[in-house]
């Protein structure tokens, strides 16, 4: 192998990158600023409509805090005007495409009523 490249590798491997310094390491526990509490976790679960068991709360909360602290890396990102020339107006013509048959639509449910899907009561 080319010797300059070999030197380059050695140098690169020594480069401390902010991101990679975290690789494989434990994040210090406890996020001083804006830390998520177990109560917050419960609230988030509520918002996400996912039941969470009491005994799961502590573990979820500490994981969240580790991850959210990592997300704080985004604080350094400069906001930009959405200047990209993105593709726009991807549209289709107003032309009818045959629908699925009612049988096929209902093929994945065990219970139906007069062609309706069944769902729990709302309240």
């Amino acid at each position: 192998m080319n010797s300059t490249l070999r030197d380059r590798i050695q140098w690169l491997l020594k480069t401390v990158s902010k991101v990679h310094s975290l690789l494989g390491e434990k994040i210090p526990a406890g996020r001083q600023k804006g830390m998520i509490t177990e109560k917050d976790t419960e609230h988030i679960a509520q918002l996400a409509d996912i039941a969470i068991h009491k005994e799961e709360l502590a573990a979820f909360t500490s994981r969240f805090n580790e991850i959210l602290e990592y997300f704080d890396l985004l604080d350094q990102v400069d906001m930009v005007e959405n200047a990209e020339n993105k593709e726009c107006n991807v549209l289709r013509e107003d032309e009818i495409v045959p629908s699925l048959s009612q049988d096929k639509v209902l093929s994945n449910v065990r219970e139906q009523e007069d062609g309706f899907f069944k769902a729990p009561r709302v309240m």
């Binding site: 009523e113 007069d114 062609g115 309706f116 899907f117 069944k118 769902a119 729990p120 009561r121 709302v122 309240m123």
Partner: peptide
Amino acid sequence: PRYTLVDY
């Protein structure tokens, strides 16, 4: 209400 029927 006991349950809900849904038509899409």
